[in-house]
């Protein structure tokens, strides 16, 4: 029983990181932009939040947790928005290829984050020595009225933020005029353009705001998942790609991404809780989230159910002159 509780908890924490990533990426992909820079954006968001709070906590003797929290949040949003802006400018305005630009963004983000992360580790006196205790503590604050509810008692508030964001995103995409417009841009930009929707504006907005949400995943990873430290171990990169996988698994629906993210968390940690596994078979177990995603991808393409398909123009550029 205790094992199941602990697995659930690990899965919820793990799932939250990729849920942020997936919700942001769903918004981006709904505009027809396939942004493979998700890991890079998470890196940028994570390191910016950490750097911001690190600078703040270094500069004052008694850091106020709430201020650290806000500084980290602002830095994360700014950095990941900037990442989204670079991607948008290159793919939408300068018409560069989406896949190549996204992969470059991932290389860039990983470089920036690990460079500055390593530098901060050196400044702080060694790997794992960065201490942003106040800020990290603020991010790990639990909801007071859930203190006695078993598995929920130790979850930081960001877990619920991710949940709410997913619901809001679902409402926005399916129930609002702007969401409808956005989906039409992703399905068929030429038609959207013809009815007077500003395709460029929608693509820019969706990609940049999507990137900001994705960046929160990086912030949560740094502040809660690894408790306010930094290690150059490509942890964010793995999770970033899983977020991309989750978008497919959820068939571009934010609500489906919620249970999908927790399922991925269970699949990812399952090996830890199953007794009698050798180290080699553990490695095979870690393959599960990816295999499941591939199966979903195949099944969706075979069944061809209309509402499960990727946005029609996903990954394709739109130039008005090329119509």
């Amino acid at each position: 029983m205790e094992q199941i509780l602990s697995l659930t908890q690990a899965a919820l924490v793990f799932g939250t990181v990729i849920l942020f990533g997936a919700v942001g990426e769903i918004l981006t992909e709904k505009s027809g932009n396939l942004n493979l820079g998700v890991p890079g954006i998470m890196y940028l968001g994570g390191i910016a939040g950490l750097a911001g709070s690190f600078m703040y906590e270094m500069s004052t003797a008694n850091p106020i947790p709430l201020v650290g929290l806000l500084i980290a949040l602002l830095c994360t949003l700014a950095a990941s928005l900037l990442g989204g802006l670079i991607y948008s400018f290159l793919t939408i305005t300068l018409r560069a290829n989406q896949n190549v630009t996204g992969l470059t963004l991932t290389i860039f983000g990983s470089g920036v984050a690990n460079f500055f992360g390593g530098a901060m580790n050196t400044m702080a006196g060694g790997v794992g020595q960065i201490s942003v205790a106040a800020t990290s503590g603020a991010y790990r604050a639990t909801l007071p009225f859930l203190d006695n509810v078993g598995v929920l008692s130790s979850l930081g508030f960001m877990v619920y933020v991710a949940l709410i964001l997913a619901f809001v995103m679902s409402w926005f995409l399916n129930k609002t005029r702007m969401g409808l417009n956005l989906r039409s841009v992703g399905e068929n930009p030429a038609t959207a353009d013809a009815v007077g929707i500003n395709v460029t504006k929608y693509k820019y907005m969706a990609t940049c705001i999507g990137a900001a949400i994705t960046g929160l995943g990086g912030l949560y990873y740094v502040m809660d998942y690894i408790k306010g430290t930094w290690a150059n171990d490509a942890g964010i990169e793995r999770l970033g790609w899983l977020a991309v996988a989750l978008v497919i698994f959820a068939r571009w629906k934010p609500k489906q991404a919620i249970w999908g993210s927790y399922l991925f968390g269970v699949l990812f940690w399952l090996y830890f809780y199953i007794g009698g596994l050798t180290r080699s078979s553990q490695e095979l177990f870690k393959m599960l989230p990816y295999v499941v995603t591939i199966v979903v991808l195949i099944v969706v393409s075979i069944r061809r159910k209309h509402e499960n398909q990727p946005p029609e123009s996903l990954g394709l550029p739109y130039f008005r002159e090329d119509r």
Partner: peptide
């Protein structure tokens, strides 16, 4: 799968990378 069912190749090949990475870890352990 792309030829037969039109399965999105970008996402499919991307996922195959991670299956291969885990397979490599498996053989490294073996």
């Amino acid at each position: 799968f792309k030829a037969r069912y039109g399965t999105n190749e970008t996402l499919f090949t991307l996922m195959m990378n991670y299956v291969a990475i885990q397979l490599t870890s498996f053989f490294v352990a073996v």
